[in-house]
């Protein structure tokens, strides 16, 4: 249930704006890969190309290949809708559907895949996903209440439950803790550790300690100047990046001597 992703010479554009240039990397299955870098360096944009969400923005397009277990996500016969069913995503701000109950939120993805399921199967899948997101014990008595009534951290774990309910191959997280308090952040980080045993996890974060805590590999993105495209400076084992980075720019960034 987890796949390896190979990215070859990926260039990302919005209309005529060149957002990210020449990224090549390998994302290993059953590991956590973190992207760090200053604001506007294209790390979130890059993350969104892994499930073709950047195409939602008008004018968004890429050149290059993203191979998931050898299959190119950008070949002509691939439907972005199918890609997104295999590559789940968790956003910066918790976004449970406000018009749905907690349970309906968890099952939203499964319902989209238009599987008819009995109510006992639905209950089972709902419980499994919520347990997988470490949320079951907190919400099991109020599954029919609106998801928007939960705290921020609970909402974010609800979104993770919603993402894993469809059993994706890969889970992308775009700064999942930046809107959360430290306790909730800890809960989500613990969860990321557990998710690693089943999924390929890719996380974008502004918080370098977080990258150091949760990830196995870290990629550092940077941009030469405002208006220039972002690029991948270096990517290595997280230990290496934080203790003994290969590039001066990386060292400056992680030690706070940036700019």
């Amino acid at each position: 249930m987890s796949k390896r992703i190979d990215i070859n010479d990926l260039n990302i554009y919005y209309g005529s704006f060149h957002a990210v240039k020449d990224v090549s990397m390998v994302i290993e299955p059953k590991s956590v890969t973190a992207f760090i870098g200053p604001s506007g360096c294209g790390k979130s944009t890059f993350l969104r190309t892994l499930n073709r969400m950047h195409e939602v923005v008008p004018g968004g397009r890429v050149e290059g290949d993203v191979l998931m277990d050898g299959r190119n996500l950008y070949s002509r016969d691939v439907d972005p809708v199918d890609v997104r069913r295999e590559v789940g995503m968790v956003f910066q701000r918790p976004n449970p559907f406000p018009t749905m109950s907690i349970k309906e939120n968890v099952l939203a993805g499964l319902r989209l895949n238009s599987k008819r399921m009995s109510s006992s199967t639905a209950d089972e899948l709902c419980e499994r996903a919520l347990r997988g997101a470490n949320l079951w014990s907190e919400v099991k008595d109020r599954l029919d209440r609106p998801g928007s009534g939960l705290s921020g951290g609970q909402q974010q774990r609800l979104c993770i439950a919603r993402a894993i309910a469809v059993q994706p191959e890969v889970i992308l997280m775009d700064e999942p803790c930046s809107a959360l308090d430290p306790i909730s952040t800890l809960a989500v980080e613990d969860l990321i550790h557990e998710l690693k045993s089943d999924y390929t996890v890719v996380i974008v974060t502004h918080n370098m300690q977080q990258a150091a805590r949760v990830s196995d590999r870290t990629g550092f993105f940077n941009l030469e100047a405002t208006g220039k495209p972002g690029h991948l400076v270096e990517m290595d084992d997280t230990q290496r990046i934080f203790n003994n980075p290969g590039k001066k720019a990386t060292e400056d960034y992680i030690s706070g001597r940036f700019g």
Binding site: V81, D82, F91, N95, F97, A108, G109, L112, R162, A163
Partner: peptide, 20 residues
């Protein structure tokens, strides 16, 4: 955010409209 949440779950445009 809600539209993107639906799309990221693999919703088609019509499904996104129906869910979000």
């Amino acid at each position: 955010l809600h539209e993107e949440a639906a799309l990221a779950l693999g919703a088609t445009k019509w499904e996104m409209i129906r869910t979000a």
